[in-house]
């Protein structure tokens, strides 16, 4: 192979960054990648010294990388770190994820808690799938709730979520296309007085998904490589395809979307009334919600009334 050299040293290049027009060797890429996450944590004041940080850890590539990076960061910037894994109950898939998560936490010396759909909800994502519903919109809502509750029970100050630049850029566009400005404004920093809501942080906010995989492969991190068998997220998938096509043609597009959103978000916050942004409580479960009845209760009711799951 005719190799390409690193832009910073004479070693063989490993990663090409089209938005910077630079090639980096493994060492320089790892350094660049980690520094960007650390800078993001500082930029948004995500973690303060001594805080207890929960990581939503699925065992997939993004959360595995996040756990490793935060584990590294705590060596120089002391804070408590623990991981929460939600077992959504997909046979042959969730069990492997939990297994990987357990092994990694043990290796890193990170406290680990597993929360089970079956135990907490009485049904699994496999049951939702069997009922003929599109499982992703249900599974996501339930996972977010269980993560928040587990983080709160564990007295976490923050809940770190492994959303990458790709996830955020997709969500920004989806919220614009669905005309949901309030959800858009709450994307980075929800306005919540409620102690029941553990604030979320997204340290991979500025990190492209592709680079997460490159980092994981270079560092030889173990992660679940099998895609979720129940995945049915048509709209997000269309947006992802469109964004990746744009990024390939116009490198830096995703980052520009994020930066534009961050600038607009500050202005939108100023323009909106505090009450519009504030998150209240669900009248059924009393958990934080932006609507009278939260999505968790609505979805749970839909599933509970399903014949397949109840076996009626």
């Amino acid at each position: 192979m005719f190799s390409v050299k690193c832009s910073l040293c004479k070693k063989d290049g490993a990663v090409y960054l089209p938005y910077m027009k630079k090639v980096l060797c493994e060492g320089h890429f790892v350094n660049f990648f980690e520094k960007r996450v650390f800078r993001t944590v500082r930029e948004f004041k995500m973690i303060r010294k001594g805080e207890r940080i929960a990581v939503g850890y699925s065992g997939g590539k993004d959360s595995t990388v996040l756990l490793h990076i935060l584990s590294k960061l705590r060596k120089t910037h002391p804070f408590e770190l623990f991981a929460i894994t939600v077992d959504v109950g997909i046979p042959g898939y969730s069990d492997r994820l939990v297994e990987v998560a357990r092994e990694e936490c043990k290796k890193l010396g990170v406290e680990h808690r597993v929360v089970y759909f079956k135990k907490e909800l009485g049904f699994t994502t496999a049951d939702i799938y069997k009922s003929g519903r599109s499982p992703c919109s249900y599974c996501g809502v339930f996972r977010r709730r269980l993560l928040n509750v587990a983080a709160r029970e564990e007295k976490a100050d923050k809940l770190a979520i492994a959303h990458t630049l790709d996830d955020v850029a997709q969500t920004v566009l989806m919220n614009i296309m669905r005309n949901e400005p309030l959800r858009l404004v709450r994307l980075v920093e929800p306005v919540v007085d409620e102690e029941a809501f553990v604030p979320r942080i997204k340290p991979l906010l500025r990190t492209p998904e592709k680079e997460v995989v490159q980092y994981a492969l270079i560092k030889n991190l173990p992660f679940q490589t099998k895609g979720c068998p129940g995945m049915r997220v048509a709209f997000r998938h269309e947006i992802r395809k469109m964004l990746n096509a744009l990024e390939e043609k116009h490198p830096g597009t995703k980052l520009k979307i994020l930066n534009s959103f961050l600038s607009m978000e500050r202005l939108m916050r100023k323009g909106l009334e505090g009450e519009e942004l504030r998150i209240g409580k669900c009248k059924i479960c009393k958990e934080p919600s932006s609507t009278e009845v939260c999505m968790f209760c609505k979805r749970k009711e839909e599933i509970s009334s399903s014949r397949v799951i109840t076996g009626c």
């Binding site: 192979m1 005719f2 063989d12 290049g13």
Partner: peptide, 21 residues
């Protein structure tokens, strides 16, 4: 799409601008 794949050559991650023999 370049954005959706990572390329490994002989087990090593490589930049997509490399040329193969």
């Amino acid at each position: 799409n370049r954005e959706e794949v990572v390329v490994k050559v002989n087990g090593k991650v490589v930049p997509e601008i490399c040329e193969l023999e």
